[in-house]
Design a binder for these strands. Structure first.
Lengths: 150, 150
DNA sequence: GCTAATTCCTACTATATTTCTCGGCCTTTA
DNA sequence: TAAAGGCCGAGAAATATAGTAGGAATTAGC
């Protein structure tokens, strides 16, 4: 049950954009270098993010990408969904409708997967890019304090 | 972030064994037929489960497999781990040690994945095969009551 | 002891998915 | 008008998944 690089790289790229929110566009080359991701590959990921309206592009020289809304309004879940499709450990719990499986035994497994799905979504949809920025700041300060005492 | 058939089939097979716990061994052919899984493929999955000590085999004619302990003592997490390896959405949170990433930005993403991992494990390790059997029974009873009123 | 049922084992294959590359066109700023 | 940078589609390479094939070893029952 691994997340592919799409989701991982994508989140890192979006985090990079969040860190520089309000400072003008960041180019793919720039993001790719900072996060150590293949440029062309990242291009495709960002295209998917753009399609879902999470980023806006500015074309031409000195162009690049910016978040389409403030970091606090972008959930990690939005990013993962944009890049990996619906969040669901198995197909049969993808949609939230009440379709029941034909066989009870399968349904019981389904109950487990449903719980897993809900718990994943709970985490991803209660964490925003802003939270991640705050977290980073916290870590930075802790490190600083640590250095002080050396 | 999908679970492969290994985990899905494996859980269904184990559930099948749980349903028949105490009734003697169930052959692969039997399980495969009941759960509609390729025999040879299931064989490989069960081999992995056996290696991890979750099932015991009885060789020869009339042989098959039985759970190595009672359904209440087998967590869904045990099964998934046996078939898919460590439960972790990304590599860097696989082990519970305190290895910190060299780059802070990655670490922040890591914090998110760590939370996801913990929430998945929480669900999978608090659900046993017995729970699934009880769940099935509950569903069965509900259906029965429903039929009664028609 | 023979036969049928069944586990056990190793290898192989086909397909799908993921990850990344290539090359070129279009847009905008300096 | 040149350089920076987004946009786009095809496809290559690597890896993982899902399954196949075939046969050896073991045991119950006759």
């Amino acid at each position: 049950m691994k997340l592919s690089t799409r989701g991982r790289y994508g989140l890192r790229a979006m985090f990079e954009l969040a860190r520089h929110y309000g400072e003008g566009p960041l180019s793919i080359k720039n993001i790719a270098r900072r996060q150590n991701i293949s440029e062309h590959y990242l291009e495709q990921l960002i295209a998917a993010l753009k399609k879902k309206g999470l980023v806006r592009s500015i074309r031409g020289s000195q162009g690049g990408y910016i978040l389409s809304r403030k970091p606090g309004d972008i959930k990690v879940g939005d990013i993962i969904r944009a890049l990996e499709g619906p969040i669901a450990p198995v197909e049969c719990v993808r949609d939230n409708d009440s379709e029941t499986c034909s066989r009870t035994d399968i349904c019981v497994a389904r109950t487990v997967w449903k719980k897993v799905k809900d718990s994943i979504i709970e985490v991803l949809d209660t964490t925003t890019l802003e939270d991640m920025c705050n977290e980073e700041e916290k870590i930075r300060k802790e490190k600083e304090r640590f250095m002080y005492y050396i």
